[in-house]
């Protein structure tokens, strides 16, 4: 069941993803997760490498990557804003929050602003239902938000160079 992967690989920053990892059957998703956490998304080159390492076809790996909403197949913005659309947050004003942020940034959820600064996403539940509505910016969770308090968080990031 275990295949050892000894690889130092080609091309871009996707290099070395497979180095030193026990390529057990089923390692495709962990590999994708590694790439995603290093590059922020799954580049075509990285996908090719994973396919080679796992002995799968590129299309199979692409099929897997597109099934899971965690994986991005194009380059995301520098800041990732996730707005919780779990039941609690939805009922507690999450929808309004989302609409507000969407308007502020001028993008629909799932998109990235033109200056590649912000990506906006929704998430099913961040597990902070008692603090609804909740939003996560680059992994930091903010709860009990109103559109205006969320806006000030955004403004803070915006002021960065």
């Amino acid at each position: 069941m275990k295949k050892k992967a000894a690889r130092d690989t080609t091309e871009d920053g996707a290099q070395e993803i497979c180095k030193g990892l026990d390529l057990e059957e089923g390692a495709t998703i962990p590999l994708l997760q590694r790439v995603q956490s290093r590059l922020g998304y799954i580049s075509p080159e990285a996908l090719r490498e994973i396919a080679e390492a796992m002995g799968l076809s590129e299309s199979e790996v692409y099929g897997i990557a597109t099934f899971y909403s965690e994986f991005k197949l194009s380059k995301p913005g520098r800041h990732l804003i996730k707005i919780c659309m779990g039941t609690s947050c939805y009922l507690g004003g999450g929808k309004k929050l989302l609409e507000h942020m969407s308007r502020e940034l001028g993008i629909k959820p799932g998109r990235t602003t033109e200056d590649e600064k912000f990506s906006l996403e929704t998430v099913a539940c961040l597990g902070c239902c008692s603090k609804s509505p909740v939003m996560a910016v680059d992994g930091v969770i903010y709860g009990g938000l109103s559109p205006s308090s969320a806006e000030s968080i955004l403004a803070h990031l915006e002021s960065e160079p």
């Binding site: 998703i29 962990p30 897997i64 099934f67 899971y68 909403s69 994986f71």
Partner: peptide
């Protein structure tokens, strides 16, 4: 530990197993 990757349906037993096997969680 196997980390999920954002698919609710993977809570379903057979989908979960497919996901651990590294496939689409169908």
């Amino acid at each position: 530990i196997k980390e999920g990757a954002g698919a609710f349906v993977c809570g379903e037993e057979t989908a979960l197993m497919a996901s651990i096997e590294g496939k689409r969680g169908m």
